[in-house]
Design a protein around this nucleic acid. Structure first.
Length: 423
RNA sequence: GGAGAGGUGCCUGAGUGGCCGAAAGGGCCGGUUUGCUAAACCGUUGUACGAGCUUAAACUUGUACCGAGGGUUCGAAUCCCUCCCUCUCCGCCA
């Protein structure tokens, strides 16, 4: 959620930036500002009346104490008149606040000055490519065939148990998952992230805090009986750990990592990209979350990008890092880097991580703050990134490391997996 | 799921209708003392949104906030209702 004071003071800048994000309803900015002005006026009005009421009530108390009941009764009449004049002001104020709130929630986060313009994924800027391009054997297969050949994943069985998009990992397939999770978590905790195992269902407030709600409820599974959402990413429960907290400046940065299953309804995405592990309703992911001092957040973003990049390097995968253009960024992000790994057998890039700085967009909703050196309240900046999303990594590991005889696993996984080859 | 108790500031905890934004103690921060540390003593210590003043900060001031939301009353932390949560006992159970 954008800060209303910032919008007030930087109206034109806000519009310019929103335009970069390809946001069309720029008139909302003016609406929000005028609603805010109305709000202030109404509040001043109601404060004044309430102040009078408070004074009068005290006087009544004193009159009663002095046994001057008649005068007290007169005052009471006066008060009841004041009260009835207050009623419409309250209603207007509530209505204005609701409207303001509703409108301001529609505004996406402002892209940082570093965000390239553009409308579609085509306009994203590749900032780096790395890793080795693989020479695959002539009979190279896509991962769904490899998964079957080596009996790692049973997609049909998942259909039977739950539905499509819920694969069953079997035997070495299951162990590979476990090895990856363990490896990623160890890698992250070594870099100073605290491991968290959060709930994988969250309440409405949490889903609101990280901006899944309102608006994206269609993407989440919902447990109606208890009003819980299954998390689409660990970002939701982990960031919300600090919801409503005032942290010490010295405690920043707060670095957390968590493995969780993630659930996404992926409503409306049928057809092409859903084959095999490419797009699932349930998948595993290890996530990074940081809460940091506002002055440091862009350095931290770069640090997180290198952290994920280094992790990818150890897996010997060919990757590229994209800086997302304004039009392709998420609603809440100020700057996002996507990591894509080249799936040699499918001959396409698969997104395996997305690292973003949200600045104060989430923390303003969650009210995660600290007192700075001048004793002034400030919102912390929040960032998160995947490190990494399992299914596509598994897909790329299988495809890119396949040989005539099996799958050669990268060295870092040998001890976690217990073997160097899947055959 | 059933029965009971309770949710107050950073913490403990008092407060059952006006003098309560809230006692007391602890903690924190600042100061005095001190060779240093400790102790002792003094002082300070909420948030949000307005208004005034100001370049700004400081400051002054109004309103709201004692789990959340409603209600009663001239007046609510205090009384009533609903919900949420915590604790104890019972039941069920990985």
């Amino acid at each position: 959620m954008l800060d209303i004071r910032f919008i007030r003071d930087n109206k034109e800048l806000v519009k310019e930036r929103l335009a970069i994000k390809n946001f069309k309803e720029l008139g909302l900015v003016d609406e929000v500002i005028s609603l805010d002005e109305q709000r202030k006026k109404l509040q001043t009005e109601s404060d004044n009346v309430q102040s009078k009421l408070n004074v009068a009530s005290k006087e009544i108390g004193q009159l009663i104490a002095k046994k001057e009941n008649e005068k007290a009764e007169e005052k009471k009449l006066e008060v009841s008149q004041l009260k009835s004049s207050l009623q419409p002001i309250f209603e207007q104020l509530a209505e204005t606040e609701n409207k303001l709130n509703e409108k301001i929630l529609i505004l996406p986060n402002l892209p940082s000055a570093k965000v390239p313009p553009g409308k579609t994924p085509e306009d994203n800027v590749a900032v780096k490519e790395g890793g080795q391009k693989k020479q695959l054997p002539a009979n190279a297969a896509p991962h769904w065939d490899l998964a079957k050949k080596y009996n790692l994943i049973d997609f049909e069985l998942g259909n039977k148990i739950t539905g499509s998009g819920f694969p069953v990992y079997i035997n070495k397939g299951a162990k590979l998952q476990r090895a990856l999770i363990q490896y990623f978590l160890d890698y992250n905790t070594k870099a100073g992230y605290t491991e968290i195992q959060p709930p994988i269902m969250v309440n409405e407030d949490s889903a609101f805090g990280t901006t899944q709600l309102p608006d994206k409820e269609g993407q989440m599974y919902y447990v109606t009986e208890d009003k819980f959402y299954l998390i689409p990413t660990a970002e939701v429960p982990v960031t919300n750990i600090y919801r409503g907290e005032i942290v010490k400046e010295n405690d920043l940065p707060i670095k957390m990592t968590a493995y969780t299953p993630c659930f996404r309804r992926e409503a409306g995405s049928y057809g092409k990209d859903v084959r095999g592990l490419n797009r699932l309703h349930q998948f595993d992911k290890v996530e990074l979350v940081q809460l940091v001092h506002p002055e440091k957040s862009y350095d931290v973003l770069e640090e997180m990008v290198s952290h994920v990049e280094e992790l990818l390097n150890t897996l010997n995968l060919q990757y590229r890092i994209l800086k997302l253009c304004g039009g392709d960024m998420s609603f809440s992000s100020a700057l996002t880097y996507d990591f894509e790994v080249y799936s040699a057998a499918q001959q396409k890039w698969l997104e395996v991580s997305s690292v973003s700085n949200f600045e104060t967009f989430q923390t303003n909703r969650m009210k995660i703050r600290f007192k700075d050196a001048h004793n002034k309240m400030q919102l912390v900046h929040s960032l998160n990134g995947s490190s990494l999303a399992l299914p596509r990594i598994v897909a790329c590991l299988l495809e890119n490391h396949q040989t005539e005889n099996g799958i050669d696993l990268p060295e870092v996984l040998h001890s976690y997996f217990g073997h160097s080859v899947i055959s």
